[in-house]
């Protein structure tokens, strides 16, 4: 039986007067990778950022509908946004390491969330190994994180997210700023991580979506057009819009 980890029900999102998301209903299954695809401006990144309440930063954003992490209502005022973000991690489009050392980038979240001091080094080592970064940085923990290459920085950002053992990882085009080799490394990593985490990823790259996803959601102009297994979306799309997009006949 597939277990629903994360869901949106009747989700509408407005920026000022402009409606960005239109009545989106979607469920994300535990330990699966779901890709959100669609042309620029279709609302896929916006959708992703609703789940960890990143829109809280923009005063003009207004959200209607129900979003749930298992049975927890994400936008309920009684629930702690801090707690939710601890359980739903996020990796951004451009690597955004903290202006601190490599080690501090990883220890930061553990410290603010009061993990026991003596456990921190092991947790960091584990996260770095999971992110395939351990061998590259183990001798230079004190180096400023910004000195790493782009691909390394992005894997550091993934390690920084997994070190907290979240339940869900949201990824917003994590490879768009990277070279093909780094991209490949991160894709491999995603496939390994899904054993422990539920992953939702926004991508522009059809091949990438095909390589890594269990499910694919195609969005267009703020609406969820089609949501199915990766195989169905790419081999037998039900809607013409989807077909045109996955075949590359799209603006």
């Amino acid at each position: 039986m597939e277990e629903i980890k994360l869901s949106a029900h009747n989700l509408n999102l407005f920026f000022g007067k402009k409606q960005i998301l239109k009545n989106v209903n979607i469920d994300f299954i535990k330990n699966q990778v779901t890709s959100l695809i669609g042309p620029s401006g279709c609302g896929k990144s916006t959708l992703l950022r609703t789940f960890n309440r990143m829109h809280d930063l923009s005063p003009e954003a207004k959200i209607e509908g129900t979003l749930k992490l298992e049975n927890l209502n994400i936008y309920d005022k009684k629930n702690s946004v801090t707690e939710i973000r601890k359980r739903i991690g996020m990796v951004f489009q451009k690597p955004n390491p903290l202006p601190k050392s490599i080690y501090e980038n990883l220890s930061y979240a553990l410290k603010i969330h009061n993990f026991p001091k003596n456990e921190i080094p092991q947790l960091i080592e584990k996260a770095l190994k999971e992110s395939y970064l351990w061998d590259e940085v183990k001798d230079e923990f004190k180096k400023p994180a910004v000195k790493l290459s782009g691909g390394q920085q992005q894997r550091l950002c993934i390690a920084r997210t997994v070190v907290l053992r979240p339940e869900v990882i949201l990824m917003d085009e994590p490879c768009s700023a990277l070279d093909p080799i780094s991209t490949r490394k991160i894709e491999d990593l995603i496939l390994i991580l899904k054993k422990d985490y539920t992953i939702v990823i926004v991508t522009h790259n059809m091949q990438q979506a095909q390589r890594i996803s269990d499910k694919v959601a195609f969005m267009y102009l703020g609406e969820l057009i089609e949501f199915n297994t990766s195989e169905n979306i790419f081999k037998q799309p039900q809607k013409d819009l989807t077909k045109n997009y996955v075949n590359g006949h799209f603006g």
């Binding site: 702690s80 801090t82 707690e83 601890k86 603010i112 969330h113 009061n114």
Partner: peptide, 8 residues
């Protein structure tokens, strides 16, 4: 500090 305390 617990999350509650930090948010406070």
């Amino acid at each position: 500090m617990s999350i509650k305390k930090r948010e406070h």
